[in-house]
């Protein structure tokens, strides 16, 4: 019948205190196998303490063609950043 193993995205936490980071992808028939394969493929050199696996088809990604409307409007909202506000140098702890 030859139905191919689906693709999974692998996220690994390198050590406690850090977030899970996208490490790459691999093929597996089910979630359990994806976890085991991820362990063997992506943490052979002690790169991780925790693994998430997500089947690739379940990820919804933004479309780069919409990057203008998605991300550019944030660029001129400089008042969200602390450097927007001028304070006299004498003010400490702020």
């Amino acid at each position: 019948m030859e139905k191919n193993w689906p693709l999974w995205e692998i996220f690994v936490r390198s050590k406690n205190g850090l977030e899970h980071r996208h490490f790459g992808s691999l093929h597996a028939a089910d979630a359990e196998m994806a976890l085991e394969n991820a362990r063997d493929v992506y943490t052979r050199r002690s790169e991780g303490v925790s693994i998430w696996v997500v089947e690739s088809k379940n990820i919804t990604a933004s479309n780069p063609e919409n990057n203008g409307e998605m991300f550019e409007p944030a660029q001129d909202k400089i008042y969200r950043h602390p450097t927007f506000y001028t304070l006299p140098d004498e003010i400490k702890h702020m």
């Binding site: 193993w5 691999l26 093929h27 597996a28 196998m33 085991e36 394969n37 063997d40 493929v41 052979r44």
Partner: peptide, 11 residues
């Protein structure tokens, strides 16, 4: 049977 199983069995 697959690259992934090769890596696992080698481990």
């Amino acid at each position: 049977p697959s690259l992934e199983t090769d890596i696992a069995c080698t481990n």
